[in-house]
Design a protein around this nucleic acid. Structure first.
Length: 941
RNA sequence: GCCCUGGUGGUGGAAUUGGUAGACACGCAGGACUUAAAAUCCUGUGACCAUUGCGGUCGUGCGGGUUCAAGUCCCGCCCGGGGUACCA
């Protein structure tokens, strides 16, 4: 073999390892550049060809930046806690630490074979105590801080306690759960337990009874981003709502900053959009509706004169539609229901509540069209019309958002409309779009969600625009003290407890039922051994099985563990100073590396990791620990590499398989077939017979002497037999070819099916490149001759193009440009050092092993990594002529080569004088001649 | 439903600011070398018409528009991919 990639790649991987070629120093005169790949979870299946796509891109960019004189931080590590290892432990009894270790070893081998330039000295693993010590430490800080809305940052809880001691909580503006007002005197007289309970309403990490997503199958609680459509994202198991005492993080305190911060980030619009929607800011008003005595035979609240429940608060984004309110709706969980329901409706309401409660979350979400509800018998008074409106209950109103109660405006809200239609409630129109006339709403088939228009039938705001109406109504209710401007977010606080074994233990113990933090000196609190990885018989999490799971003083330790995002929310900061055992990272290291300049990973983390990490970073920023408020300045989402499945067609009830082209002539069953025994859609019949015992005796009906398989693009997955793993490709073509090919497939951000069809072309190119340095007998043959202008032009044109392409992350076109360059140099038979040496540096980020080998062969003793990136000299690119495309009425007809410095007048003369033009003009005089120098000529006839 | 994306040859894709559509690669066809094959090299390859040569017509999901000029900009649709879903 002319180009022996096997030996070459092994040799240089060894060299990089021994020489720590890619070690990044924390002290440097060079400018820094931080390139990060999203934290991988080391799964048992190892890497498939889809995983390295982003790693290759980030590696190319890292190597490029090193050539450009940057001190590059390019680390790698493992998000090692996770469900699969624990599920495996439950099934087999093998400790998840062993499974994880094995998986990591396999991952590392695969990564090494790809020739990545990681600084492995900085590797972190979330399950290592020296790493999770700092996860626990951060949790303690989260517990010890609250969020001050006035200063817009996290502050130490002691500052809040000071305020409570001096003036109580009447005048504070802080992020908290609803809590009663108390005076300084009351506070000072509360017993410690009561004080701790109250403080829990303010801490950023807090314990509370919340409605959680409980997944019985996984035996744990899940965060909102881990649930989709009522099913767990991992495993697809049903999830139900349940009230449980859990740790949460008050991420909602940061909602506004998480939203605002997006603007300055260099992320794709779609990703920002996903985060914006997830945060879900709504601006509107909270308005109080008084209850009416109407219909209340034994109306408790009013008859007893109690204050409680006398008003119902609603949240609306459209206060201008308040004159169109014809009823109110409460969520089934609303606390006032018992109080207001009239005796004649009691039974009906209770029936409904029982039904709603037993309805699964999945049913509720999938049966959106099913309209259900019940009338309470009670009425409220519209504060602007003084009309009495019925109060209903329905589960289309959610307990977790706003106040759990709405004013229904059926004419202008689709859900209210459907509800009103179903229960035959009035539908008054109050907004009129500018080009319409008021209609009879009883003939409407859907609501008009008029976001613009004029208010009609609307008392004091009749005739106003929507915008004016909103402002006027808010001012009115604020003036009367029955409402206020209000902003709501869809974002929920992040539930932080998991009833699992394989996660970070909380640094928490309980005294008198109240949680306390361990002293920092006691960290890390190491994960204990357990006899089984299952919950206890009484339903407690696995850690409750651990012996002596108590503090030195004998207090019980927390038995929940932290969720996956705990360990991955600050790993990028830890890389800056991964071995520091005194602090999470040093101020100096953080001041130098600041934040991630380029982050590459999948878009599936948009509502999980990427929000949590931003929140976590902002918190550490508030504490003055890190210098940048945002963790990831630029982010690229690499597209997914899908699998391309192969199919065989078995004639039903037989063991005969019919080729793709004839399958319609038989009654066949389509079966997945391992893509690794199919080449160019042609099945290797012998391998197929050996593949599964069932197929040992298989017979085939061929077309043109071969068995052709059908194909389909699907997710790459073991169960679909379409997984391509990088190791096989590397054995066959080498890592450099794989690297180039993955880039050549298409734009980084685009999803595409994996198909090895084109890999031969890339392999040919690499060998062609190699041959530029060698003669027919594979001996090194470098000429020291001076390059010709043609050769210089090829080189500098390529330098320019490759540099432009890499700067805009267009790796696929860069590979094409290398191919063009190699083709052109082969054509002129160029073997000159002056051309090939810069070219080797240029290709080094893409095909590093090849480049190192050629670089050494060119006589260099140091790694090519230290070489400067070549710079384009434009003087070699100057042309004397330009070949003008000449168009007639916009249609290109012929080209004409003219001197580049020719004036517009001269060009026109030359073009019109050309015989080709005479032919197209057919004797007519052109109406107009458009000439864009060095671009185009267009003649309008 | 709403939001974000994308739609270009047989295939992956290129065209960066409105200026020669289809670079580069695969595949396919033909040829050279070879006893043969592999490898390598050369030629052709959007469709249709014409073919003796010159050529011509159409063509970037569909229908309109702006412009000397539109894959690119504007308006209205269709289809695929992703996100989200009673968020008031």
């Amino acid at each position: 073999m002319d180009y022996n990639f096997g030996d070459i790649e092994k040799k240089w991987q060894q060299y990089w390892k021994e020489n720590k070629t890619f070690k990044a120093e924390n002290i440097s005169d060079k400018p820094k550049y931080y390139v990060l790949d999203m934290f991988p979870y080391p799964s048992g299946a190892g890497l498939h060809v889809g995983h390295p796509l982003g790693y290759i891109a980030s590696d190319i960019y890292s190597r490029y930046k090193r050539h450009k004189g940057f001190n590059v931080l390019h680390p790698m590590g493992y998000d090692a806690y996770g469900l699969p290892a624990e599920q495996y432990a439950i099934q087999t009894g093998q400790h998840p630490a062993i499974t994880t270790e094995n998986n990591i070893t396999r991952y590392r081998q695969q990564l090494d074979k790809l020739g990545f330039s990681f600084d492995w000295d900085r590797e972190v693993r979330t399950c290592n105590a020296d790493y999770y010590k700092w996860t626990q430490w951060t949790f303690i800080q989260l517990f010890n801080h609250y969020y001050n809305n006035k200063t817009k940052k996290a502050e130490h809880i002691n500052q809040l306690i000071d305020v409570f001691c001096k003036e109580g909580n009447a005048n504070i503006d802080v992020a908290c759960d609803a809590s009663d007002i108390f005076t300084a005197e009351e506070w000072n007289n509360y017993p410690e337990k009561k004080q701790q309970e109250l403080l829990m309403n303010y801490r950023i990490a807090f314990l509370s009874d919340t409605q959680v997503n409980w997944c019985p199958k996984l035996g744990t609680v899940l965060a909102n981003d881990e649930v989709n459509g009522g099913l767990s994202v991992r495993g697809g198991h049903p999830v139900e709502r349940k009230s449980m005492r859990q740790w949460s993080l008050r991420i909602t305190a940061y909602a506004e900053r998480l939203l605002e911060g997006l603007d300055a980030l260099n992320w794709s619009e779609s990703l920002k959009e996903i985060q914006k929607n997830w945060i879900g800011k709504s601006v509107g008003a909270e308005v109080s509706f008084h209850l009416s005595p109407k219909g209340a035979d034994d109306f408790k609240v009013l008859s007893s004169g109690e204050d409680l429940g006398e008003v119902l608060k609603i949240f609306t984004t459209r206060p201008d539609t308040i004159f169109g309110v014809s009823f109110m709706v409460l969520c089934p969980e609303h606390e006032v229901i018992n109080t207001i329901t009239t005796s004649d409706k009691k039974e009906e309401v209770e029936q409904y509540l029982t039904w709603a409660k037993n309805r699964s979350e999945r049913e509720r979400q999938t049966e959106v069209n099913k309209i259900t509800g019940v009338f309470t018998g009670a009425y409220a008074i519209n504060p602007l019309t003084n009309e009495e409106i019925p109060i209903w209950i329905s589960d289309y109103v959610l307990a977790g958002y706003g106040t759990g109660a709405i004013m229904a405006v059926p004419a202008h809200d689709s859900r209210d409309f459907a509800f009103a239609k179903h229960f035959n409630l009035p539908i008054p129109q109050v907004i009129l779009p500018s080009d319409e006339e008021a209609g009879d709403t009883s003939t409407w088939t859907e609501s008009k969600d008029s976001k613009e228009g004029t208010c009609i039938n609307s008392g004091i705001i009749t005739g106003m625009t929507v915008k004016e109406g909103i402002k006027t109504v808010i001012d009115f209710v604020e003036g009367k003290g029955i409402g206020k401007r209000q902003i709501n977010f869809r974002l929920r606080d992040a539930i932080f407890s998991r009833q699992r074994y394989w996660g970070e233990p909380f640094p928490v113990y309980y005294k008198d039922g109240m949680p306390y933090m361990l002293d920092e000196s006691k960290l890390p609190l190491e994960l204990p051994e357990v006899d089984k990885y299952l919950p206890t018989e009484s339903g407690e999490p696995p850690l409750a099985r651990a012996k002596n799971w108590i503090t030195e003083e004998g207090y019980p330790l927390e038995t929940n563990t932290m969720p996956g995002f705990a360990g991955s929310s600050a790993y990028y900061l830890r890389y800056m100073d991964a071995k520091n055992d005194k602090e999470i990272f040093s101020k100096e290291a953080n001041a130098y590396w600041e934040n991630v300049d380029l982050y590459i990973g999948g878009a599936e983390h948009a509502t999980g990791h990427l929000i949590y990490a931003r929140f976590w970073n902002k918190f550490l920023f508030d504490l003055g620990l890190c210098v940048k408020e945002e963790p990831f300045q630029k982010l690229i989402n690499q597209g997914m590499i899908q699998g391309r499945s192969s199919f065989v067609y078995r004639i039903k009830g037989t063991n005969r398989f019919v080729s793709y082209g004839m399958k319609n002539d038989f009654d066949v069953q389509q079966l997945h077939c391992d893509v690794n025994i199919v080449d160019n859609d042609i099945l290797d019949i012998d391998k197929f017979r050996d593949w599964l015992p069932d197929y040992k005796e298989a017979e085939f009906i061929l077309e043109d002497g071969v068995y052709v398989c059908g194909t389909e693009v699907e997710k790459m997955s073991k169960s679909l037999y379409n997984v391509q793993n990088p190791d096989d490709i590397i054995v066959r073509y080498g890592a450099d070819t794989l690297r180039l090919y993955e880039m050549f497939l298409g734009p980084l951000e685009q999803s595409k099916p994996w198909d090895t069809k084109g890999i031969e072309g890339v392999f040919r190119f690499i060998r062609k490149f190699w041959k530029l340095f060698h003669d027919e007998n594979n001996n090194l043959a470098i000429s020291e001759e001076a390059p010709t202008p043609v050769e210089l032009k090829i080189l500098h044109k390529t330098i320019k193009k490759i540099t432009e392409d890499i700067e805009r992350f267009s790796f696929n076109t860069a590979v094409s440009s290398f191919m063009i360059c190699a083709n052109e140099l082969s054509e002129v038979k160029c073997h000159k050092r002056a051309i090939l040496e810069p070219l080797t540096v240029l290709i080094a980020p893409y095909a590093p092993h090849l480049a190192e080998e050629l670089w050494a062969n060119l006589g260099h003793n140091e790694s090519i990594t230290t070489a400067n990136y070549p710079i384009c000299n434009e003087t070699y690119l100057v042309e004397s002529n330009f070949k003008y495309p000449v168009s007639f009425n916009g249609k290109m007809r012929y080209t004409l080569e003219l001197p580049i410095d020719m004036s517009v007048q001269e060009i026109e003369k030359a073009v019109l004088a050309s015989p080709d033009s005479q032919k197209w003009l057919e004797g007519k005089t052109p109406k107009k001649v458009i000439i864009v120098p060095k671009k185009i000529v267009n003649i309008v006839i």
